[in-house]
Design a protein around this nucleic acid. Structure first.
Lengths: 212, 212
DNA sequence: CCGGGTAACTTGACGCCGTCAAGATACACT
DNA sequence: AGTGTATCTTGACGGCGTCAAGTTACCCGG
């Protein structure tokens, strides 16, 4: 056992430890409960120690948002890989549900990723900017392919269609997470409605996982 | 001139004065800049005075959000009245643009009305709850009528269609205000794309104000 | 006219917060 | 061994929301 070493002045792995702890706090107590002081305390360092690894609180939040984008991209890509490019409609449906589920499972992180906390109040880190744009580009490309397959209407350029349709997803996610108008239980049904609206489908399969 | 009376211990019109000042601060410096202390200072009373008219900071914010809903409803209704119920498609288009414009012109208030600050963090006042639900009901009724006119698809109940389509508007508003993905200049075009998507229109009038 | 009740307002204090400034510590390299 | 540097600590400042206890002005029945 070489673990103990009660207080090795130099923590050694502070940055990752901070990120992990911050994610934990956010997940359990919400992003409002995350303060630099409390974070430092929880990791076992003094209050100013984190400032050697993150210039700001904003800087820390950006790093967390970055991780969120990475997670989301991973999840989203797995949806694509699961199906291949064969059945576009099904792919889109799964995508939508995956997106909503991600937002629902990680409400606080989602908030950080797209909320004003970072994007309006504090300036987003350049690297966060890149990451988020890359994530959006993934979506635009996807929409383009779905337009070619006739799943989504091609009456507008892919970029515009991507923006408008993504706004729908984002709006749903926000309403769900903020608890306005939309009840958690109705979400799947609303998501299906959104899918039908966007794909201009006549009727609706009520649950995507139905044994077809 | 009977105005001066430098410091009449009892302010007399404190509550409305607080609301007005709060709205001013929010409009000019953002909701983050609104603190109870600063507000009190600006109105010329001591820090705890506002607490006799608003139980909480949350209570104050709810009151501001209420006013926001009132404004929004007024604006929305004026769109309806402007056109009558004759041309549903045009009505819907104008509605969407009016909605977005409202969000764009009052970003901080909009944030308060639908954001987590009130709905998740602090509990919304009962009366705010009522007001917001009434506002949403207005939208649901509207959607129902548009479905009857064939402007919006009737494949789902009015409630679901209202939720899904409203999510689109809300998403656009959020993205615009938070500065994610959507540029201010592209907004009208994106809004039109959204209208076309939702109404399943084949092509698009590019600007609503275009001379037919 | 006066006495007391009550609503409006003030001042003091507490414990949080983010972070600047300056000092202490441990390691890395010459 | 000595020096430089990255890392971590402690102290302090101003700001926040708000509880508790005091002060002031008005209102109303006698």
């Amino acid at each position: 056992m070489n673990a103990p070493e009660p207080k090795p002045y130099h923590h050694g792995e502070l940055r990752p430890a901070l990120l992990a702890a911050a994610n934990g706090i956010i997940r359990e107590a919400g992003v409002d409960a995350l303060s630099m002081r409390r974070l430092a305390d929880q990791v076992g360092v003094s209050r100013m120690a984190p400032y050697h690894h993150f210039k700001d609180k904003n800087d820390l939040l950006c790093a967390i948002a970055e991780m969120g984008f990475a997670d989301q991209d991973r999840m989203i890509r797995s949806v694509i890989d699961d199906i291949g490019t064969e059945d576009g409609a099904r792919l889109f449906e799964n995508w939508v549900h995956a997106y909503i589920r991600f937002a629902h499972d990680n409400p606080e992180t989602y908030d950080l990723m797209y909320g004003k906390e970072i994007w309006k109040r504090g300036a987003p880190t350049p690297v966060l900017h890149q990451v988020s744009r890359a994530s959006f580009r993934l979506w635009v490309d996807m929409v383009g392919k779905l337009q070619l397959q006739g799943v989504l209407p091609a009456t507008h350029p892919a970029l515009r269609t991507a923006q408008a349709s993504w706004a729908t997803l984002h709006g749903l996610a926000r309403l769900l997470n903020d608890g306005v108008y939309v009840l958690s239980g109705d979400l799947d049904e609303i998501a299906n409605t959104a899918v039908d609206l966007l794909t201009q489908r006549t009727g609706g399969s009520q649950t995507p996982g139905a044994p077809a």
